[in-house]
Amino acid sequence: MPKRILQGVVTSDANAQTVTVSVERRLKHPVLQKTIRKSKKYRAHDPNNAYKAGDAVRIIECAPYSKTKRWEVLEA
């Protein structure tokens, strides 16, 4: 099974070697047919502390680094 790759914006870089990435997806409401924006936050491994809040990054699935980290930053 291939690893998922998501694109989002870094919302927090307060922790060491960790960034919080907000990924937004758009979908159509089943009844109203209106476009809805849904977002979810992922914690990703950033070993060099290279990314700051506001940066657009791509993240990829990986083996668990900790209790909450299951993603790592692929590139900006």
Rank of each mutant, 00 (worst) to 15 (best):
Y51L: 12
Q17G: 00
V9P: 04
S39C: 10
T20F: 05
A53Y: 00
P47D: 07
K69R: 15
V57M: 06
P47T: 01
I60C: 08
Q33M: 09
S12I: 04
V21D: 00
L32Y: 13
V19S: 02
K67T: 14
Q17K: 15
E72W: 12
V31K: 13
Q17A: 03
R4H: 05
R37V: 11
Y65Q: 11
V9E: 10
A14P: 01
K69M: 15
L74H: 10
K34D: 06
D13I: 00
S22H: 09
M1Y: 03
N15C: 09
I60R: 11
D55A: 08
P64A: 04
V57K: 06
A14M: 08
A44T: 03
K41G: 08
R4Y: 00
N49D: 14
R58F: 01
A16C: 09
M1H: 04
A76L: 14
P30H: 11
K67V: 15
S66M: 14
Y65H: 15
L6W: 04
K3M: 10
N48H: 12
V23A: 00
T20V: 10
D55I: 05
A53W: 01
A50F: 03
M1Q: 06
A56E: 05
K69H: 11
I59F: 02
S12Q: 07
N48M: 11
N15L: 15
H45P: 04
V10D: 02
M1T: 07
K41L: 13
G8H: 09
L74E: 03
H29T: 03
C62A: 05
E61T: 06
A53K: 08
T20A: 09
V73N: 04
E75C: 13
H45F: 14
E61F: 00
A63F: 05
S12L: 03
S66G: 06
R26E: 09
K52A: 02
E61K: 05
T18V: 02
V19W: 08
M1W: 07
E75I: 14
Q33I: 01
H29M: 06
V19F: 03
E75K: 15
P30M: 10
N49P: 13
I36H: 12
V21T: 00
L6H: 05
N48G: 10
V19P: 06
I60P: 08
P30E: 03
V10A: 07
T35F: 11
